[in-house]
Design a protein around this nucleic acid. Structure first.
Length: 112
DNA sequence: AATTTGACCCGTC
DNA sequence: AGACGGGCCAAAT
């Protein structure tokens, strides 16, 4: 029997974020079946040890990066997001519209 | 054991 | 857009 703990669900929800897309902490928590536990998601992300975990796809609700501007993690996350076709401007992330998504699919990674 | 802190969120001003 | 207050939970002090 699978007695999944909240952590496992949160991690699963984060891993479920598709390439080129982003989700908020609360969104991930809600998706994991834990509404209102956004802080739990944050804590788990800080404790996670999985390098394969797309932590860079997790942002605040405002679409802002959770790290202080100028921080190394901040820069890394923004760069990683850009590499996936997500527009990042001044620490703010713009959700890819259809046109942008198509553009990213054509000119983004994997395409030549 | 109580208080503070933390990769947060929401409603309201 | 930014500021305030309240809520949430677990680890750290």
């Amino acid at each position: 029997m699978s007695a999944k703990s909240p952590e496992d669900r949160i991690l699963a929800a984060i891993r479920a974020i598709p390439h080129g897309q982003v989700a908020g902490y609360g969104e991930v928590a809600h998706r994991a079946g834990l509404p209102g536990r956004a802080r739990l998601t944050a804590r788990i992300l800080g404790q996670n040890d999985d390098p394969a975990l797309p932590w860079h796809r997790v942002l605040r609700s405002d679409g802002r990066i959770a790290f202080p501007e100028g921080s190394k993690a901040f820069h890394e996350q923004s760069q990683r997001l850009r590499a996936e076709g997500v527009k990042v401007e001044n620490g703010r992330v713009k959700r890819p519209r259809k046109a942008d998504d198509l553009d990213a699919a054509l000119w983004g990674p994997g395409s030549r």
